[in-house]
């Protein structure tokens, strides 16, 4: 059986052929994927944004998810070409023009993982961690979690994920899943300024979500993707333009009741999900933070992190 290699070490023709045949196997954190695409934009995006991720070009095992990037119809292969991500089950996916294939791939993969994963409690959240524990940033109010996660990476935190807070039901630990960080609009420039342009993919402009670029996970994030951590700090960021920075501690029961609706699968999981979530909340301190800019949010989160011993 073929061994896993760093995706960046696979020559382009081999990678493209494997994708065309639908037998590229990618392994990252808790999920493996089978990928299929006859599309140079997807191949190039993988080479850039997934450079350090382990893959094999022949399927060595079955996978958690399978995603195919294809034309929405026979007609769209030729005229005003479009692509759509097919996760193998029926979803209301929006066809996108071919130049946005990378976005289609990322959205399709997120959807496949979010809808199919039941082995872990999955939250819409960004998570980073150091050797002492993890910071869980809930996306509840859409308050710039990706920017905050990117900034914390520069401060020495490992990237777990900017899209999925994954909780292991057997031990209530958070599980890394270091996919590329998705940056939108103004945050692209902000993150480029503090991480350097090398770490960002080219910008996809005029997408349905505005401008988008991806910040690649670092080799160290990927190598340590099997190291799970307990959550020490849970934050619910609220961005209000021009607001003065404030942090308000939340009662544990309130934090828990706020986290439930941000989960994509909690309602499916039964008692195991409840036990893991109560343990996670019991072992952490939870805050709602309000802020008006990235510097303020960083300052608050660093103070809170110091307060819980991170």
């Amino acid at each position: 059986m073929e061994h896993f290699r760093r995706l960046g070490d696979v020559p382009y023709p081999e990678l493209a052929q494997s994708l065309k045949d639908g037998c590229l196997e990618m392994s990252l954190g808790p999920f493996s994927k089978r990928l299929k695409a006859n599309n140079s934009q997807v191949t190039e995006f993988l080479q850039d944004a997934y450079r350090d991720v382990p893959v094999r070009t022949k399927l060595g095992d079955i996978t958690d998810v399978a995603v195919t990037i294809k034309s929405p119809s026979w007609f769209r292969q030729y005229v005003r070409r479009q692509v759509v991500a097919d996760p193998g089950f029926i979803v209301p996916a929006v066809p996108l023009p071919v130049r946005l294939s990378a976005l289609s791939f990322e959205m399709g993969l997120n959807l496949a993982v979010a809808l199919k994963c039941c082995r872990l409690v999955s939250f819409h959240a960004a998570v980073v961690g150091n050797e002492k524990g993890a910071i869980f940033i809930s996306a509840h109010s859409g308050g710039g979690k990706s920017t905050l996660a990117s900034a914390l990476m520069v401060e020495g935190y490992r990237l777990f994920s900017d899209e999925f807070g994954l909780l292991d039901m057997s031990n209530s630990l958070l599980v890394p899943y270091p996919r590329p960080v998705s940056l939108k609009g103004d945050s692209i420039n902000i993150v480029r300024d503090f991480t350097g342009a090398d770490w960002l993919t080219p910008v996809l402009s005029d997408t349905p979500k505005g401008d988008i670029a991806y910040r690649r996970a670092r080799p160290s994030d990927i190598e340590e993707a099997d190291k799970k951590l307990s959550s020490k700090l849970i934050v619910f960021p609220v961005f209000t333009k021009g607001a003065r920075p404030v942090a308000k501690e939340l009662a544990k029961s309130e934090a828990l009741m706020r986290l439930i609706p941000s989960s994509t699968n909690y309602h499916l999981l039964g008692q195991g999900g409840f036990e893991a979530l109560t343990a996670m909340v019991a072992g952490a301190r939870s805050y709602e933070i309000q802020y008006g800019n990235t510097d303020d949010s960083m300052k608050i989160v660093k103070d809170l992190a110091a307060g819980v011993g991170l």
């Binding site: 499916l268 008692q271 109560t278 909340v281």
Partner: peptide, 22 residues
Amino acid sequence: LVIRVMEDVNLTFDTLSGDTHA
């Protein structure tokens, strides 16, 4: 029911419905 008391709230998980009640 699985009940966890946090502060003054009885977080109650109904194993039949899968609902969590405060």
